[in-house]
Design a protein around this nucleic acid. Structure first.
Length: 185
DNA sequence: AATATCGACAACCGCTCTTGG
DNA sequence: TCCAAGAGCGGTTGTCGATAT
C-alpha cells in the first residue's frame, strides 16, 4: 500500500496526533482558515500531509462538534436515513448537527449493524438497494434521487411508491429503535 | 497479576468527483 | 475537451482502554 500522492515528496508523520500538533492546527485554522489543505500543513508547521490535517480538523478539532454518545433520537434518525440513503455517511451526517460522517459510520458499524445481526433483522436498507455497494443501484438509485430532490414533481405512481416505502421504513426504524433500547446481550 | 478478547473510535488508503488551467 | 491537482467520500485497519478469564 502506498502513501498519498501529496505525501510522497517529503517525510510526513503518521498515526495519532499529539496535543502539540492539535494546538498548531487549531491556531492556524482559526486564525487563517484552512484554504488549501495541502499548504495548511506546511504553514502551520506540521509534518503531516494535507489530507491528514483536513481529517483531523473535520473529525476532531472543529469547534462545532457535539461529541459524546448518540442519543436514541439520533440513532433512530440514522436508521431511518440509512434506509433511504444507504451508506452515504456524509449525507446522513449532514442531518445530524455536530456529528461527522466518520462518527456516524463508526456508530453504525460498531453498534447498529451488530444489533441487526444479533436480532436476525435485515437492515431496512437491504430491501431497496444492494447492500454490497455503497451507492444505490438501478431502480433504487432512481427512487432515492427522486426522494432527495424536493424540486422534482412526482407522478401519482411515484408519490404512491414514495409513501408506501416511507411507511415501510418508518415501521422498520421503529422496530430498530425498540431493539436498540433493549440492554445489550 | 497477567493475558486475552472485545468495543469504540481515530486515522489511513484508494477511489471518485470537482475545479482550474 | 483534456489533464492534473486537490478535496471529499466510504471502506478498512490500527490503537487503546475496558472487561473477562
Amino acid at each position: 500500500m502506498g502513501h498519498h500522492s501529496c505525501c510522497n515528496k517529503e517525510k510526513v508523520k503518521r498515526g495519532l496526533w499529539s496535543p502539540e500538533e492539535d494546538e498548531k492546527l487549531i491556531n492556524y485554522v482559526t486564525t487563517y482558515g484552512h484554504g488549501c489543505w495541502s499548504s495548511v500543513s506546511r504553514l502551520a508547521g506540521l509534518q503531516r500531509c494535507g489530507k491528514s490535517c483536513r481529517l483531523r480538523w473535520i473529525n476532531y478539532l472543529r469547534p462545532d462538534l457535539k461529541r459524546g454518545s448518540f442519543s436514541p433520537q439520533e440513532a433512530a434518525l440514522i436508521i431511518e436515513l440509512h434506509s433511504i440513503l444507504g451508506n452515504r455517511w456524509a449525507q446522513i451526517a449532514k442531518q445530524l448537527p455536530g456529528r461527522t460522517d466518520n462518527e456516524v459510520k463508526n456508530f453504525w458499524n460498531s453498534s447498529i449493524k451488530k444489533r441487526f445481526i444479533t436480532h436476525d433483522v435485515v437492515p431496512p436498507f437491504a430491501s431497496l438497494v444492494d447492500v454490497h455497494n455503497s451507492k444505490p443501484q438501478g431502480e433504487a438509485a432512481d427512487f432515492v434521487s427522486l426522494n432527495l430532490n424536493p424540486n422534482l414533481i412526482l407522478s401519482d405512481q411515484q408519490r404512491d411508491q414514495l409513501y408506501l416505502s416511507h411507511q415501510h421504513h418508518c415501521y422498520k426504524a421503529l422496530l430498530m429503535t425498540q431493539i436498540l433500547s433493549q440492554p445489550k446481550q
